[in-house]
Amino acid sequence: MPPTTSPDARARLWRAAQLAPVLSVLVLLFGGALVLALAQSLGFAPWFGVNTFPDPSYFGSLWGSADFWVSLGLTLAYALAATGLALILGTALALALVRAFRGQRLYKYIYKLPLMIPYTVGIALAVLMLGNGGMVSRLAAFVGLIDSPGEFPRILNTHYGWGIIAVYVWKQTPFVALSVYAVLLGIGRDTSEAAAILGANRRQIFWRVTLPQILPGIVSAALICFAFNVGAFEAPFILGGGYPDTLPVVAWRYFNDADYTLQIQGMAVVVSIALVAGLILFAWLALYRWQERRMGRR
């Protein structure tokens, strides 16, 4: 029997047809961008009159400079600090949200606000609150800690990145809370009530019963936040400490340089960012799988 007439093959064809539009969009955009970035970072740029493919020298000079590693370190440090804080704050928030309290309906509106608005609003708020002439500095003067804006310790535009981290945490705590809250709703209260009846205290219930159940939700929320933070541009651009910048800002500066060799170098930065994200994703998933197996889930 020819394959096209069998109902099985027709079903498969129909399935492929239904998947095709969304897949082609992602494959073309993702694949195209990825291939182009990789090719250009390896010296394939005929539009600049350059074609030395495959030429590892752009990666060589990028990875050979100490500044690149400083930038990478800053990028990872801000991303990690913000993700860690958002995870803790968000999980604690979700645990409070599943309990009964007055004003719960209103609260569930309020806490989601940062999810609904762009990062740029968060950055504007950070400038207003944490800048040297900002609200925190005014409050410090009000209680008599300082006498002039110059005495206020710089929070923004330093390499400690407090401003950047504050914006990420402000925006991502609700995201983590919502993710974990959804998981908590899904698992219900049966197991924790059973543990309570068997004599477990609140702390034991959290560490032994609840946390293992919500871990998958926490892990995926963390992954999404962390990857976003590694690739975020606007917060470090406005609130960062300047040179050496985080990798996305470095890539953007290279990319806007009139010198086309630097533009090609910029692509090497882009590929590096993608590599970092890929490595983190891979390591994280491997760790997660290992943990699951250790706990005997699969």
Partner: peptide
């Protein structure tokens, strides 16, 4: 969701 925005 996890490919950095800048890269893409």
């Amino acid at each position: 969701l996890i490919v950095p925005e800048t890269a893409i």
